[in-house]
Design a binder for these strands. Structure first.
Length: 290
DNA sequence: AACCAGGGAAGAT
DNA sequence: ATCTTCCATGGT
């Protein structure tokens, strides 16, 4: 068992992080003690506990874990997942000079939170394709509860090996569509055979990853963009095809209809090279918590 | 009942 | 290359 204290420059609103993570029942969150338990997908699964003991302006965390994974490796991974390795201060200052100023002021200190695992991220993205959030979460929960496992009360997604072996009908019984069941099992099989290696892909550029992944059945540009954003934490993604982004822009600019791709290209230009954070805050701007 | 939802594949242009 | 059409499945 080891412990480490982490401190860095704010703003970083951990309460907002916890409250948002709480929306997904698969996450282990205790808002009262400001504690989050993160599944760490090493050679052996291991749980990492993160407790917030600071404030938004002076964020401070105690990280503890027990297991075979090297402490510095775990800390680096957790820091990346929770975006402790990004300066929200700089990003916030930047967006105060843009059209997104009101949204950034309202959600000040909101970091991007990455998915805890690349395969989990990809599966989740496929499940979420074209479904409303409520139902997509329900499907994801069924999937993880059925095929994943729990450790110290924390849910882990199953391995691709496990999913490569299940039958389409099993997923159909859980109300997955035929196509979606095929996609998820198919992608898992590609990973098992080594034709798709997510951690190797992580070494490549956004464009190169896009080029390779869209060739896979069930993975379109939206899914790759979300994988780059929430899986790899790449900084400059703007999923134009995303209905949430479109609705957020419609609301922000008081449009009668959803914006066209050309209009979206125009809007996003001043937000480079921080498009991922622009996307994140646009999504937040249309969430129910008003 | 009709339209929507944090799309994708396959076919048509 | 880019634009339709159809596909699925529950929510509102």
């Amino acid at each position: 068992m080891w412990q480490e204290t982490i401190q860095f420059e704010g703003p970083y609103n951990f309460d907002l992080v916890l409250s948002h993570l709480q929306d997904d029942p698969l996450n282990w969150v205790d808002q009262r003690t400001k504690t989050l338990k993160i599944p760490y997908y090493g050679d052996k699964p291991q749980v990492v506990t993160v407790q917030g003991v600071g404030t938004t302006d002076a964020p401070k965390f105690i990280v503890t874990s027990e297991g075979p994974a090297p402490k510095d490796k775990v800390l680096q991974r957790v820091a990346h997942i929770l975006q402790w390795d990004v300066s929200l201060h700089d990003i916030h200052e930047y967006f105060l000079k843009t059209d997104l100023r009101p949204i950034f002021e309202k959600h000040k200190g909101t970091p991007l939170i990455l998915d805890f695992d690349l395969y989990a991220c990809l599966v989740k993205c496929i499940i979420h394709q074209q479904l409303n959030m409520a139902f997509a979460r329900k499907l994801t929960e069924r999937f993880v509860h059925t095929y994943g496992f729990q450790q110290e009360g924390v849910w882990f997604y199953p391995s691709p090996e496990k999913i490569a072996d299940i039958r389409i009908e099993e997923l159909r019984q859980m109300q997955f569509s035929q196509r979606k069941a095929e996609y998820i099992i198919g992608v898992s099989k590609l990973i098992v055979t080594g034709e798709l290696n997510l951690s190797d892909l992580a070494e490549l550029s956004d464009d190169e990853i896009m080029k390779r992944m869209v060739k896979i059945r069930g993975i379109g540009s939206w899914t790759v963009e979300n994988f780059l954003l929430f899986g790899l934490g790449r900084p400059n993604l703007f999923p134009k095809a995303d209905i949430g982004i479109q609705n957020a822009l419609k609301k922000l600019y008081n449009l009668e209809r959803k914006p066209t791709y050309d209009e979206m290209d125009e809007y996003k230009r001043p937000w480079e090279p921080y498009l991922s954070y622009a996307s994140l805050y646009l999504w937040r701007s249309i969430e129910a918590t008003e």
